Simulated assay, not measured.
Amino acid sequence: MSYLSQSQIISIPISEQFRQTALEFAQGQPTVAKAKQVYLNTLAVQVVNTYLTMLDIPTELEAGYCWLPRGRLFADVADLVLTGVGRLECRPIRSGDRTCQIPPEVWDNRIGYIVVEINKSCKEGKIIGFTPDVTTSEIHLEQLQSLTVLIEYSHLVQLRQWLEGIYTSNWQSIEELSNQRSNQLSFRAKRVRGFELDNPAKAWQVVEQLYPYRSWEKNLPKELLDNTGQQTGNLEVSPNNYSKLTGAIAHLLQTTPDEETRWTLAEILWTLEPNHPAISARRLIDLGMRLAGHPVALMVAILAKPDRNVAVLLRVYPMGNQPYLPPGLELAGLDENGQTFLEVKARENKDDYIQCKFCAEFGERFQVRVSINNVSIQENFVI
């Protein structure tokens, strides 16, 4: 084969049990063509699952859409869930094929695509290669990357999965981390534009400051009006219209093009309703005492953008009884080549957090480094 060297291709025997499972799934299909599709898809998924198990990469075989009767009936799907990482699509080809078909229904919500060659007797599967993203319904085998890229991806924090509510266990919500008695986050009173966000009425005052001359009115849909035709902002904040208030903020967050305004709205919504789906892709990792004895936590939050890119917010907070970050502590964002594109340092007795903001595209990799006194901790991400 000219597209990848033989040393890069992994051969996995297909057992009788694998073929029996594939046959069982295929027999429930309405046409011969659909039955063949399901049969090969099921074999490909089992081959990849065997390979990843050999590498001690945890998977959840039966959590895939292709393991659900309705999932395989209504879609051409061959997904394998990597625990805490996301869905990997396992696409089958036959011996001699030079291209692989990628149906449009699996272009989204995937951490990548792995191609498996099934031989004529269906007794052997060869894992040919991997690609992290697709934009067309057909890929040439020459485009595939080494399987080492897949292994690297399995160890990256997959931020795209955060938008689907999928997180690894070491990344926690602020509430989860704060509820651990020994890991209290040190927060000052939340203030945005001079207002303490201690009740919904004050929160809405901040929203009105963001939109001079009530320009927010034209951005709200009719369902966020009250029965008299007035906007939420005119109403007295009460349990009856609280959902309208948070709904209005969430709608503005999703439709406002200005990045600073969007993050301010996110901050307000975090305070009013931390688990609102519009801003739920926010997690922290406890860096503990690994940073020269300084207890801090790294927060990462992402917001989906209308142009299919994402906005990223990085923050470092002090933990325990420390009201401020240690002076000189640095937070930096680096590209996949290790080049710094953003950095900020904590000042003495002044910063209860430091942060960086930037935008990134799906498939883009970056690194986050937290450091002080030549000691650093680094986390690796992919959008």
Score class of each variant (00 low, 15 high):
F74P: 11
T340K: 00
T42K: 01
L80S: 08
Q8V: 01
R98I: 14
D76V: 09
K36T: 05
L287K: 09
W263R: 04
R91V: 05
F195D: 00
L298Y: 01
A248W: 02
I372H: 02
S154Y: 03
E348A: 12
Q27I: 04
T256W: 12
A266S: 14
E164L: 15
P212D: 07
Y3A: 13
Y39A: 00
F74C: 15
P132R: 02
E330N: 13
I354G: 00
I114E: 01
G233L: 11
D97L: 08
D226Y: 13
Q322P: 00
Q231H: 15
E175Q: 08
L291N: 10
H294A: 07
F362M: 07
V134W: 07
N309F: 04
V375I: 09
P326D: 04
I57H: 01
P30I: 15
T148Q: 10
G194E: 14
Y211V: 06
C122W: 02
P69E: 13
M1R: 07
T256P: 08
T53Y: 12
A360T: 06
F381E: 00
S121L: 10
H140Y: 09
Q8H: 06
L177N: 08
W204H: 03
L159N: 02
Y317G: 01
N241R: 10
F195C: 08
F25L: 03
N109S: 15
Q355W: 13
K123D: 12
E196Q: 15
N241K: 13
G71I: 06
E176V: 12
E175T: 10
P200F: 11
G333Q: 00
L4I: 13
A301E: 06
E223T: 10
N373T: 04
E176N: 14
D79P: 02
S121Y: 06
T255Q: 11
G86C: 12
Q180Y: 11
K305E: 10
T136C: 10
P13T: 10
T53L: 15
T148S: 11
Y324D: 02
Y167E: 07
L291C: 09
F74Q: 12
D79C: 07
R283C: 08
R70N: 15
R282P: 04
E208G: 08
T246P: 01
W162D: 07
A346V: 01
K34Y: 07
E16Q: 04
Q254W: 03
A33V: 11
T53G: 11
Y167Q: 05
N275E: 06
H251E: 08
E138L: 03
R369I: 04
T83G: 10
R160M: 02
I268Y: 02
N321Q: 07
S146N: 13
D307P: 02
S146M: 09
P257H: 03
E260T: 15
G229A: 10
G86Y: 00
